[in-house]
Design a protein around this nucleic acid. Structure first.
Lengths: 244, 244
DNA sequence: CGTTCTCTTGACCAGCATCAAAATTTGTGG
DNA sequence: CCACAAATTTTGATGCTGGTCAAGAGAACG
């Protein structure tokens, strides 16, 4: 099932980068949008800009939650493991996504970069202080949490009740337009993740994912430019499959 | 898989009941705890106390979200359906639980009473106005949403990667102490729901749930007083199974 | 280019679903 | 309190989807 290899990240293994919130391309898609321009300096003051290489960890399941993150570019996977190494990816994250919406004492999932990734890191105390002052942030976070909760319930329906082909179709239709900062031509989907990762997200094996891609291609619903770029030829049938 | 029968609820089919927040037994477990005693009258002013019979609906998936609810006693199930009727129960709700944490324009799940249930219903506009005034409520809601999100991720691991016996063990250990208002002796678990409902929650069939209960009993981990009350004889082994 | 990682394809298998029927519990009316 | 009907659960026989094991074909990277 899902084995994983993680290039762990030392305390300050991130490379620092600089940027200002005013020019942040992810701002429009993130909770930061709740802050008016004149308050952005408050964010800048407490944000640490980090660069994370593929496979490196932002948060590790079970570890104390000392920071929260806002992804500004790239993509990441969040997952949980069973003691014997089975992996369930609970979500893929893109620019604008917030890491640690669930404010628990310890992280409930591990989050690793899939592609090279940049993010803002906030010390939890700093973030809390800012939230206390600018309550709109809290509202934005609550709205985001609500969206995540709705998505989580759809994923439960998928994992509990859908067939392999329905799962893959759902994945391809529901995938957040991938990277809001880098839109693609309609009908084109970018899949930065591997077949194994798709499998671990859909509760399948990589072999089943591969065979199921084959089925969708043979049915004329899909075409694969290469492993990471697919084109939807029959949107209608794909959606019909996705709904179950 | 999961067929369902719903006794639908007319516009004002709920029986009204009266109660005051000060005396509410569910208050300690609910978001209302964020409000100090002196502000409770604000809640009372906008709360409509309703009584819901088993099988009746609080919210229906897809319908406009005009109200939010706070359950004060009894239990409910939240679920989603595929067009062909497969059901996935996304959660069981008990006293203190808030219905519609995800503030979407339309309900993302159907919520029905399992047992006779009482709840506070708030018109969404009223609730929003109160939240705007008493920001602590928003914080409590955010905290609750975070807990739900964490639980949802655990459920994804369960649905995507665990075996039947691991799923049932997880269910029995993770089940919220059932009804916080009605504590049971340690090791005793009350299951207000049917086997079919457990199956639809765990992504299994009722037959598999039944057989798996049998396995747990034969292994000396469980004893069944009756269908709705079980006793855990070997907590250690149950937890070991649950973790996977 | 060769090494390594990822993906595809095939053969076989197992866990859980499906179909079916019997047993037990629950509910109802007398 | 009993008898009967309906609903729920248990148990059994069989089958299918997707998992496992294995080998080979592409891509990617140095």
């Amino acid at each position: 099932m899902g084995d994983i290899e993680t290039a762990s990240l030392g305390t300050c293994a991130h490379r620092r980068a600089t940027a200002a919130c005013v020019h942040c391309r992810a701002r429009a898609f993130s909770v930061c949008a709740a802050l008016p321009d004149e308050d952005l300096h408050r964010l800048d003051a407490i944000a640490e800009h980090i660069v994370v290489e593929p496979g490196q960890v932002l948060t590790r399941e079970g570890e104390a939650q000392t920071s929260v993150f806002n992804i500004t570019s790239g993509s990441a996977r969040a997952y949980k493991l069973t003691p014997d190494g089975r992996r369930q990816i609970t979500g893929f994250l893109f620019a604008g996504d917030f890491v640690s919406l669930s404010d628990q004492p310890n992280h409930v999932a591990t989050v690793e970069a899939v592609e090279p990734l940049t993010a803002c890191r906030f010390r939890k105390a700093d973030w809390r202080a800012l939230m206390a002052q600018r309550r709109d942030l809290e509202g934005a976070l609550l709205a985001r949490a609500g969206d995540e909760l709705a998505a989580a319930q759809s994923q439960m329906l998928l994992l509990g009740r859908k067939t392999a082909i329905e799962r893959l179709a759902s994945f391809l239709t529901a995938l957040p337009a991938n990277d809001p900062a880098r839109p693609l031509p309609a009908g084109h989907i970018r899949l930065p993740m591997t077949r194994t990762e798709i499998a671990d997200y859909l509760g399948l094996t990589l072999e089943t994912v591969s065979r199921t891609f084959g089925r969708l291609k043979r049915q004329g619903i899909l075409r694969e430019a290469n492993r990471h770029d697919v084109e939807v030829l029959d949107e209608k049938r794909l959606h019909a499959l996705a709904d179950g």
